[in-house]
């Protein structure tokens, strides 16, 4: 019982900052402080009129979409290989691919900046951020898809081969539909991570900022803070929706391929 109270207090601690978002987003004051003064939807209206923000959001969406696709493709390769028989060095290679999960993001950011700018002399743009985001999202995709492939009976694909299908058509007709929920879940997670990522994007962004980089710029101007609150509210709501869908698909995937749920994304 004591533990339950502690756990609930902990959850409140986790959610405390987020709960403030809508409060200030609808508060009729330019200063972000208590007490609240009145209700307004003004900050949301202002969001719709900010062209620079729209450009940044569009950039971020493009980056997040590309990241989601490429990270999931890489994740699919690794997770499928993971479900196959072991070969010498396999564990080491998988560990290496998963490394960005524990690497400080600033290290990834500066090392990519050095190689792209200083060594190769390329100019930065959305594609450089995509490269980096695919790198950090792939481990998450692998973790999610490992769950989907791990719960899959290897005899399924063999059965399809046995019934006359080729390797590719067996994969397409049997494995792909069975891991599809995992693929959707992986894409949503990668999309969410990329959309929100700032530390690396700040280093690798070109002349067109991503949404988090744009927000970072706004944070210096007190007058734009309520607008950020409004934007944050929308983002949080969007993330929760995306993650809930991702979780539903992940669970469905585990169930569909016949496994039991062990919980969690990681």
């Amino acid at each position: 019982m004591k533990l339950r109270i502690y756990a609930i207090a902990y959850l409140i601690f986790l959610y405390a900052p987020i709960v403030l978002l809508p409060l200030f987003a609808f508060n009729d004051a330019t200063i972000i402080a208590f007490p609240l003064t009145g209700f307004t939807t003004h900050w949301f209206t202002e969001l719709t009129q900010n062209a620079a923000l729209h450009a940044a959001v569009k950039n971020s969406l493009i980056i997040a979409l590309c990241t989601a696709i490429f990270a999931t493709i890489l994740g699919l390769c690794a997770a499928r290989a993971g479900a196959m028989s072991a070969f010498p060095g396999k564990k080491g290679i998988v560990g290496f691919v998963m490394l960005p999960l524990v690497l400080p993001e600033i290290i990834i950011a500066v090392s990519l900046l050095v190689i792209l700018r200083q060594v190769l002399g390329l100019s930065l743009g959305n594609w450089t951020i995509i490269l980096a985001h695919v790198l950090i999202c792939t481990p998450f995709s692998i973790a999610i898809l490992n769950g989907a492939f791990g719960a899959l009976d290897p005899a399924m694909e063999e059965a399809a081969l046995d019934l006359g299908e080729t390797r590719w058509s067996a994969f397409r007709l049997v494995t792909l539909p069975l891991v599809m929920p995992g693929i959707i879940s992986s894409m949503l997670i990668a999309f969410t991570i990329s959309l929100d990522e700032f530390i690396i994007a700040f280093f690798l962004t070109g002349s067109n900022p991503t949404m988090p980089v744009y927000i970072w710029g706004l944070l210096r101007f007190p007058s734009s803070l309520p607008v950020i609150m409004a934007l944050g509210t929308i983002l949080v709501a969007l993330s929760i929706v995306l993650l809930t869908i991702a979780e539903i698909f992940r669970r469905r995937g585990v169930r569909r391929s016949g496994g039991t749920d062990t919980g969690g994304f990681l």
Partner: peptide, 30 residues
Amino acid sequence: PNQRPTNMVFQSYAIFPHLTVAENVAFGLR
């Protein structure tokens, strides 16, 4: 295996869970 005149009943049966019984049985007739 897909061109051999053999077919297999797997230990786990490997019934495709995303298909109906009829679709499973018709799988090899595609």
